[in-house]
Computed example of a mutant assay.
Amino acid sequence: MTSLPAVAKEYRLPKYESIDDLTLGEAPVSQLGYGEVLLKVHAVSLNYRDLKIALNQYPLPLGQHIFPVSDAAGEIVQLGEGCKKFTLGDRVMPNFTRDHLTGGPTLSALLTAHGGAIDGFLREYAVVPEYCLVRVPEGWTYEEGASLPCAAVTAYNALMGLIPMKGGDTVLIQGTGGVSIFGLQIAVASGANVIITSSSDAKLELAKSLGAHAFINYRTHPDWEQEVLRLTDGEGVDYIVEVGGPGTLQKSFKCIKYSGIISSIGFVAEQGDPGNIAMLALARGVIFRGILIGSREQFEAMCKLFEVAGVHPVVDKVFKFDEAKEAYRYLESQKHVGKVVIRID
């Protein structure tokens, strides 16, 4: 274990206007309180949320002058008084929402979302409560571990959090971003049949290598919901991981099975008319569910599934710490498949 520095490098967002507002500086390493640990942050991963926060387009409350980025993996280098679960050197990941430990979210827990309402992890060292930590799966790199807290837990909650998906169910995954690829991997590991959409045939080829069963290029098939119905003999799918938002919702309702579940996660397709959601849901007896990431308990259960099934994250590209702005811009370009990571070392 190396000696701890008195001062460490960190990025902050002093204002929310553009990616260029990311500001690299230095500050003293914080002291520990009761039940807290000091993490040497080794890697972070970016989510669409991080981009929206930097551009002041995020719909939920934000803190002031925050450390951005919710997803991190690091090593415990110091333990505060009262810590019992972990030991020095343990490799861990903070849960996306610090105080969401079990069950559904609460208002008070949502106000502890890392990288938004409270400080995140685009920095060399971070002090966090021991209770929000989850072990990095055995044999994984820090870059892989940093990929999990937001996107993977969101996908797990969408498919396993309300009425758990089961083997033989059919799942529609929209797109090939972070949440979507994790949704694909979770569904395949659980024995479901997966239909996936993308605008890129190359990305669909990668999805095929990860176990997807059917593929729809929505540029070639703009009425992709009709292709979903064709692939399911007119029945529709049991689950939809809905990342488009207003621009795709009406199509999703047309190809969900009666009594199916649509999990609303993102708003990548912001342009469009979502229609009368109440009537659309009523017409097919559908559960339409908004997903607010997930609990530490779900995070731990998901890691067990990944370990048993041998699932590893798809890491598209790794940037250096001083290339954080370039990483954000690469995410913005939507050229990635899977996760965009920043290595802190």
Rank of each mutant, 00 (worst) to 15 (best):
I186M: 06
V127Y: 12
E10Q: 14
Q271C: 04
E124W: 10
E124S: 07
E36P: 00
A158D: 10
A8D: 01
I262M: 08
A27R: 15
Q64A: 14
T197W: 02
S199G: 15
Y11I: 03
T141P: 01
T220F: 01
Y58I: 03
P94L: 13
G33K: 14
F321M: 05
I342C: 04
D233F: 10
A278F: 14
V134L: 05
Q64S: 15
V311T: 10
I163R: 14
G178Q: 04
K317D: 01
G177I: 06
G310H: 04
L282E: 09
K85D: 12
P14W: 09
L122W: 12
I19S: 10
E205V: 09
N95T: 15
M165F: 06
L101W: 05
P94I: 12
L46I: 06
Y239T: 00
E225I: 02
Q31A: 15
P105V: 14
L88G: 04
L331A: 12
L162R: 14
S147L: 04
A269W: 03
L184T: 10
A212T: 01
I261P: 00
G167Q: 13
K317G: 04
T197E: 02
R289V: 07
N217P: 01
S263I: 06
G25F: 09
I265L: 12
V194F: 06
S198E: 08
Q226K: 15
M1A: 14
A155H: 07
S252W: 10
V268H: 02
I173D: 10
G294K: 10
V308G: 00
A189I: 06
V171G: 10
V127S: 07
H221C: 10
H65W: 06
Q78P: 00
L231F: 03
G25N: 07
F288T: 06
G168W: 05
T106C: 07
G245R: 05
M165H: 08
